[in-house]
């Protein structure tokens, strides 16, 4: 049984000019302990798919799927309360802008303890102890003092570590990371990616990594899904994808990497447009 199984997921948004289809019949499958990367440029529907799983889309979105199962449980059949018991506890998510996704009015300690209270019913000293353990696990120095800091007093990389600590607080079985390093420097990106990979291996979590950076994919993924315009273009294990990409769009993405530039000009996706557009 797969950890997360989604069949034929479509998401459309109501706009003033009629419905806009952001995602068109995509299927996803993640096994326990597997790292799946979803790659695509803006507007490819890569974030929308995972927001649909988390139930975080606005009311203007219409979500349809043949099946959406987490450990065999049908997510669509669950009531709001039952679903909330899974979301944030067994499936956790971290976002692109770490500074923006933390509440600026509360200390990071308050925000991590809030999760521990809600999902694990921890109180008092046990809760404080667990929060310190989590900060240690994600490599925040002086965790006891750091709990009293506000998000604006920490750097972007430190805030992302706090977000990861909050996400793994309930030992989730699946972690969804939506562009976790896009806003960070390359040296910090390396640290955060190694942290995620270490936690994933130690805890045997399933990890879905949403990114547009082929370099990040090459460094982390077991399996890769390439999306374009709300459709799945290709799905392959990471080595096959980089060695023998079967889809024209994937080839375009790989050749647009500046390090793969052979001539004076970089090939762009437009050069492959006839092949890519159906």
């Amino acid at each position: 049984m797969a950890l997360l199984e989604i069949e034929n997921l479509s998401v459309s948004f109501d706009t003033s000019t009629g419905p806009f289809k952001a995602l068109d019949g995509a299927s996803y499958r993640v096994e326990a302990g597997e790292v799946l990367a979803i790659v695509g440029e803006s507007g490819s529907g890569k974030s929308v798919a995972m927001l649909a799983v988390m139930g975080l889309l606005p009311p203007t979105a219409t979500v349809t799927a043949d099946a959406m199962r987490f450990e065999g449980r049908d997510l669509m059949a669950l009531g709001a309360r039952e679903r909330r018991a899974i979301i944030g506890k067994e499936i956790a998510m971290i976002f692109q802008e770490p500074v923006a996704s933390l509440n600026p009015c509360f200390t990071v300690g308050f925000q991590i303890e809030e999760v521990l209270t809600t999902h694990l019913a921890l109180r008092g000293r046990a809760r404080r102890k667990r929060a310190i353990e989590l900060f240690e696990a994600v490599g925040i120095p002086e965790p006891a003092q750091r709990l009293k800091s506000f998000p604006h007093q920490m750097s972007g990389g430190q805030c992302q570590r706090v977000m990861i600590a909050i996400a793994i607080a309930c030992e989730p079985k699946l972690l969804i990371a939506d562009e976790p390093t896009t806003a960070l420097d390359v040296t910090i990106q390396k640290q955060i990616l190694s942290l995620l990979m270490r936690l994933q291996a130690e805890r045997g979590m399933g990890l879905i990594l949403i990114t547009h950076d082929m370099g990040v994919v090459a460094e982390t993924a077991d399996r890769v899904i390439v999306q374009y315009n709300g459709k799945k273009m290709e799905e392959a294990d990471v080595l096959t994808l980089f060695e023998r990409p079967s889809n024209a769009y994937t080839r375009a993405l790989l050749s647009a990497l500046p390090e793969n530039a052979t001539g004076v000009r970089l090939p762009t996706v437009a050069d492959y447009r006839e092949e890519v557009a159906p």
Partner: peptide, 25 residues
């Protein structure tokens, strides 16, 4: 050197090396 080491590598050889290291675990 740190900066170079931190830049993700997207060539097939380094992917192969990473997967081998992971399998050896």
């Amino acid at each position: 050197k740190t900066l170079f080491a931190a830049t993700p590598r997207a060539d097939v050889d380094s992917i192969r090396a990473r997967l081998a290291a992971k399998a050896a675990g």
